[in-house]
């Protein structure tokens, strides 16, 4: 954890959000919607994969939402929202053309330094449910540049085939071939599902990887981490090669309100992406 103070001048815009206009909305599942938005007052978001925004609906409140698109040179970006409470349910009632307000990007994400350690390696994405939303910002960056990596494996698990997010993009991903592979599983198969059935850890033995040459990115519901980490460690993957992306309650996004703290670590500042080796001893991790 960061143990030095870094005193700054007052930032008059710290809590002042900016406008973003909804360009496109798609229903993914009963509870999850896709939004494409455009910044109105700046040419681009300027994020790195894995960062998040504080998204507000005026009069309702603010919620942390991952940026779901890869870094880009234009003003558009994506997010995917699960309706769960006040802000997220209100977001689901909005229409194309409506304005939402955002602050950020916040958090560390997969910064340039981390990304450079991935070059030439086998990238192993292990994603559960809504975890695809944040990891898509990295997947959609590395897949078009796939020649720079040894291999890209995406393991995706969700409850039923109806809960697949970005279903169309997953289908595309599965067709790329070459050094890109997609393995999927569902907890409960229905008549439309012909693929694997079982928890996400059942996919791990199905891929061929050299643990020392592989970097794993794990994102999913809290319960998933324990099982996936155990499975990876049993395969002798070094802890330094594992990244996890965590969810915490967040009110400010800028290291003040205290809600996201995990022992001494402010997840909104030093995370939400963590190298497992650096945080494994943190007792509030999982």
């Amino acid at each position: 954890m960061r143990t030095k103070l870094n005193l700054r001048e007052s930032d008059p815009k710290l809590y002042l959000p900016e406008r973003a206009k909804i360009l496109k909305i798609k229903d993914f599942t009963e509870n999850e919607k896709f939004f494409e938005l455009a910044l109105l007052d700046r040419p681009k978001l300027g994020h790195v994969p894995g960062q998040f925004l504080q998204v507000s609906v005026l009069g309702i409140g603010e919620a942390p939402i991952s940026i779901s698109s890869a870094p880009a040179e234009h003003n558009r970006f994506d997010m995917c929202v699960r309706a769960i409470g006040d802000v997220t349910k209100k977001l689901h009632t909005l229409n194309v053309g409506d304005i939402v307000y955002i602050r950020g990007p916040f958090g560390n994400g997969f910064a340039e330094k981390t990304l450079s350690t991935m070059l030439g390696k086998h990238l192993l994405f292990i994603v559960g449910g809504l975890g695809y939303a944040p990891l898509r910002s990295l997947i959609n960056k590395v897949v078009p540049e796939r020649d720079k990596y040894k291999k890209i494996s995406v393991l995706y698990g969700c409850r039923t085939s109806k809960d697949r997010m970005y279903a169309h993009e997953l289908d595309e991903l599965s067709k790329i071939g070459g050094n890109v592979e997609l393995l999927e599983t569902v907890d409960k198969a229905d008549e439309n599902w012909t693929g694997s059935c079982g928890v996400i850890t059942t996919l791990i033995p199905k891929i061929d990887f050299n643990p020392n040459e592989t970097i794993a990115m794990v994102v999913g519901p809290p319960i998933m981490y324990k099982f996936v980490l155990k499975a990876l460690l049993e395969k002798n993957m070094p802890k330094e090669n594992i990244y996890i992306d965590l969810e915490r309650r967040m009110k400010c996004g800028v290291g003040k309100c205290g809600h996201c703290q995990m022992e001494g670590i402010y997840v909104c500042q030093e995370g939400p992406v963590f190298n497992y080796a650096e945080v494994e001893k943190n007792e509030e991790l999982l």
Partner: peptide
């Protein structure tokens, strides 16, 4: 004072 200036200067507090 230090906490509110750390990393991001909180405008309401610092004013």
């Amino acid at each position: 004072h230090e906490a509110f200036a750390d990393d991001h200067g909180d405008p309401n507090y610092l004013a």
